[in-house]
Amino acid sequence: MLDLDYSWLADPAYQSWLVVGVINTLKLAAISSIAATLIGMLGALALTLRIAWLDALIELFVEVFRNTPPLLQMLFAYFTLSTLGLQVTDPDTGLSMPLLSAFACAAISLSLFGGALAIEAFRSGIETMPRAIIEAGQALGYSRWARFWRIEAPIATRISLPALTNILSNLFKTTSQASVITVPELMYYAGQIYNDNFRTMEVMILVLVIYVTLVSILTYLMARLERWMAFPGYGKAAS
């Protein structure tokens, strides 16, 4: 039924497209993952201050980004930031061109999307921390900040890690949508290849396998990190 022909893979042009695509996907994923984690930590940190107006602003941010399609967010970001946004004049050609490339727009939009999810993850990590630990810290005479940095933050980070793994793998998968705004990542080059050789099914299967492999490696590494960071005798790793 399926007669798959992968002889086109021998072509160096296709090989280099695939390699460049994977590298750009990894770059986009790395940048947006780091930014999303930072946004998540800062957001959750801001929530612990319990300032009502800040809390409301963060909630609005989280809900808007969680409840709208990331594809639409990306298109909107690309459109507003690149087409309508800041323009610079190219010194060589004298033409006006957008300051932010498609890649930058995708990175910004994915960072915000991932950041909104990460805020939720870290917030629930802080919330589900056992009260007894905080009370023990208070009883030992820790100051508010020492308690946060030495007790609450390390434990909350570890509680939030499984949720963060989910978010980062979700974010990695979402980077494929950047192809829609012509970011030259793996999915974009997949389109280039099958438009060239018409081996659509073969290309899509290969790309699917590459993505699954990359995401599996990511989740494996995060599981390793989880085990490495685990406190002896505390949490899931203890059992």
Partner: peptide
């Protein structure tokens, strides 16, 4: 289950379109 969970929705949708 793990294969489907680890594959991007967009790529899976594209793949189904052609498979």
């Amino acid at each position: 289950m793990n294969f489907l969970r680890n594959s991007p929705w967009l790529v899976l949708l594209f793949a189904m379109l052609y498979i």
